[in-house]
């Protein structure tokens, strides 16, 4: 662990040195606490179905693709995977398209009702949103979008939108309004100034919040399970087959759920803290 070799230790102070060791041990242990369970999942995924169901387990993966092949060949899985990706992609697009303008408005304008609007956004965080899937299931049947990718994406967008608004708000707030004003004096109007000056600056941040919206949707279980029957997403499929599916299918499925999340959190790690910092206010 690179963190283990932090600052220079003063050789005279034994207690400080001991404290340093306790500190380093704690950091390493906490890293292990997060990583070891993930490693176990990896072992199970990269083992043959026979090995997954046998005892005792080896603590080194045998690099057998049997479980993953079984997963890919299992009826309905690939469609579920496709649905998951579609729902998440739709959620990503909708939450940014709908959320970003509001983030911009919050950062640039003082207007009546601004506090009320902020309250509405923050209010969404004080409710267990997946429960809304229940009444929406009825509403969707009436409007004919029940059991569709689009219907589920609408619910997931509700989950992702508060984040999209707050993140884009903090992004736009980080760009001085003088930049925009300078563009106006140089012959840009609001729209072109936004396109040419602001957009390039916020694009990485917007991408990060889009990715975050993707992960929110990709991981969501309850609403997905309530709202889809034929067009199940991967989480809904795995949940509904928990009782019947063999262990190697569960583990391979869990692994497929985890991988994109790992990559995405890595991609947005810079923005995670900015996002939650502003969310406190």
């Amino acid at each position: 662990m690179t963190a283990a070799t932090t600052d220079v230790v003063d050789p005279g102070q034994d207690t400080r040195k001991a404290g340093r060791y306790v500190y380093i041990t704690a950091v390493v242990l906490l890293c292990a606490w997060v990583l070891v369970p993930l490693y176990f999942l990896l072992i199970n995924t990269l083992s043959s179905p026979e090995a997954v169901n046998s005892y005792p387990k080896s603590f080194i993966p045998e690099f057998d693709l049997g479980s993953l092949t079984f997963f890919a060949g299992f009826e309905g899985i690939l469609t579920a995977l496709k649905n998951s990706i579609l729902v998440a992609a739709l959620t990503m697009v909708m939450s940014i398209l709908i959320g970003a303008p509001a983030g911009y408005a919050l950062s640039r304008f003082e207007f009546r009702g601004k506090e009320l609007f902020r309250l509405l956004i923050l209010l969404t965080r004080a409710f267990p949103l997946p429960l809304l899937a229940l009444p929406l299931a009825v509403m969707f049947i009436r409007t004919g979008i029940d059991d569709t990718v689009f219907g589920l994406a609408l619910v997931h967008t509700t989950l992702a939108i508060p984040f999209a608004v707050l993140i884009t708000f903090s992004l736009f707030s980080g760009i001085p309004i003088e930049l925009e004003e300078a563009a106006w004096t140089l012959g840009c109007n609001r729209v072109t100034a936004f396109q040419k000056v602001i957009l390039p600056l916020v694009l990485p941040g917007i991408t990060a919040s889009a990715i975050f919206a993707f992960v929110i949707s990709w991981n969501e279980v309850f609403a997905a399970a309530v709202l889809t029957i034929e067009n199940r997403t991967l989480t809904a499929f795995l949940l509904q087959n928990l009782d019947t599916s063999p262990l190697h299918l569960k583990f391979a499925g869990g692994f497929i759920l985890v991988v994109p999340a790992l990559i995405f959190i890595f991609a947005v790690r810079k923005y995670l803290f900015a996002m939650w910092g502003i969310a406190n206010r």
Binding site: V34, N219, V221, K250, I265
Partner: peptide, 23 residues
């Protein structure tokens, strides 16, 4: 690096977490 490792579970679905501990 440490922060990334510690925040990994943030991106993991509760279903996946359940499956991980099932292992």
């Amino acid at each position: 690096l440490i922060l990334y490792i510690w925040t990994i579970p943030l991106g993991i679905s509760d279903l996946a977490a359940g499956i991980i501990w099932l292992a």
